[in-house]
Amino acid sequence: METGGRAGGRVTLATVASALGVSRATVSNAYNHPERLSPRLRSRVLRTAGELGYAGPDPLAATLSRGRVNALGLVHGAPMSFGFSDPAAVLFLQGVSEVCEREDLALVLIAGGPDSAVARVALVDAMICYCDVPAEGGLAAIVDRGLPFVVVDGPRLPGAGHVGIDDRGGAASAARHLLDLGHTRLGVVAMPLIEDGWEGTADQDRQDRAHYRASCERLRGYREVVEGAGHAWSAVPVEERVPYGRDAGRQAAAALLARRPRPTALLAMSDELALGAMAAAADAGLSVPGDVAIVGFDDVPAAADAHPALTTVRQPHREKGRRAAELLLRPGVAGDEHRLPVELVVRASTGPPPGR
């Protein structure tokens, strides 16, 4: 059985094939085996299918008459390996798994991102999109499925539930903490702002063009506090490195600490970046917090175990996973929004600037 239709008759895979003058196999491959088609041909097939009102093969119809498999799908915006290696992502996955275990549901991990062929055909009843993607088109494949879905940390979309945190408020509390300690020379160790592999200083134009929601919100939080205290944001260097992780934090922080005058405090957009920044300080023979104060964001387990223990913004990763899964168990998930609290946790990695 194939889904999709419009007034005046049901649109099928054969309808699309006929309109394009291609075989049914070609249309099927556009959804199930995109590697067998050129990007240009696949784009043409999907565009025509959309114009005709055909959403693609129904992955459930071949195996289930009732249309349920008792499974939730989890789509990660980063490579699947990231979900098992990044501490914050691991905690989130634990939260989702707890609900699935309690409700006797399978959890299907969907590789390739939200616009992959797997996301289009995975046998699931609903989806969790743990994806910070551009609002326009970033989750088109998920939307086309017509299944209930929840977006976590990404854009708010019509018809979807949403779970997130106050990224801007959390970042603001981190910046305010450093200014209250007397720091005026700050630097930012940034998560990626744009998916283009850029490594270097993110100037104001690049900051303005950033499309990842969390990165944008955290930058805005930092900036609002800095400018509110009467300092120029243009004097705060922002450094990006790829791929995301501790080594990226180490490299970005090394560039910041090589500046003259050197920043006396670093705002890292995650704990992984902050832990890399602490390593960069050690590489440069600098003490934390004596020579440079460092604040992270996330409060993963390694933050409290670091030497010195990391000051950071705590967010409830496991609760975020639980809340996302629980939303999908309710009828009418569309439009349901949950913003979870954050708090600044002050530890030993921050103190006043040198000489104070």
Rank of each mutant, 00 (worst) to 15 (best):
S234A: 15
S234R: 12
A235E: 15
A235Q: 14
A235P: 03
V236G: 02
V236Q: 02
V236I: 15
V236D: 01
P237L: 09
P237F: 08
P237E: 10
P237A: 09
V238F: 01
V238Y: 00
E239H: 11
E240H: 03
E240A: 06
R241E: 13
R241T: 10
V242H: 12
V242N: 13
P243V: 12
P243G: 09
P243S: 09
P243K: 11
P243W: 14
P243Y: 12
Y244A: 05
G245E: 07
G245N: 03
R246E: 10
R246Y: 08
G249W: 06
G249I: 05
R250S: 10
Q251P: 08
Q251M: 14
A253I: 08
A253L: 05
A253T: 10
A254D: 14
A254T: 14
A255H: 07
A255S: 11
A255G: 11
L256Y: 15
L257T: 08
A258C: 10
R260L: 06
P261G: 06
P261N: 09
P263S: 10
P263K: 07
T264M: 04
T264V: 07
T264D: 01
A265D: 02
A265T: 07
A265M: 14
L266D: 01
L267M: 05
L267A: 01
A268Y: 00
A268K: 01
A268R: 00
A268E: 01
M269C: 13
M269D: 01
E272K: 01
E272C: 08
L273I: 14
L273R: 04
A274C: 06
A274T: 06
G276L: 03
M278F: 04
M278G: 00
A280Y: 10
L286D: 04
L286S: 05
L286C: 06
S287G: 12
S287R: 15
V288F: 04
V288Q: 04
P289A: 02
P289M: 03
P289W: 02
P289R: 01
G290P: 04
G290T: 05
G290F: 06
V292H: 00
V292Y: 01
V292A: 02
A293Q: 02
V295I: 09
V295S: 01
G296A: 11
F297T: 03
D298W: 04
D298C: 12
D298E: 09
D298V: 11
D298P: 09
D298S: 10
P301T: 14
A302E: 14
A302S: 11
A303Q: 05
A304R: 15
D305L: 13
A306H: 04
H307Q: 11
P308C: 11
A309N: 13
L310H: 11
L310S: 10
L310C: 09
T311K: 00
T311D: 01
T311H: 01
T312R: 10
T312Y: 05
T312M: 06
V313M: 07
R314C: 07
R314V: 12
R314N: 10
Q315T: 13
Q315V: 12
Q315W: 10
P316S: 14
H317C: 07
H317E: 12
H317Q: 14
H317K: 15
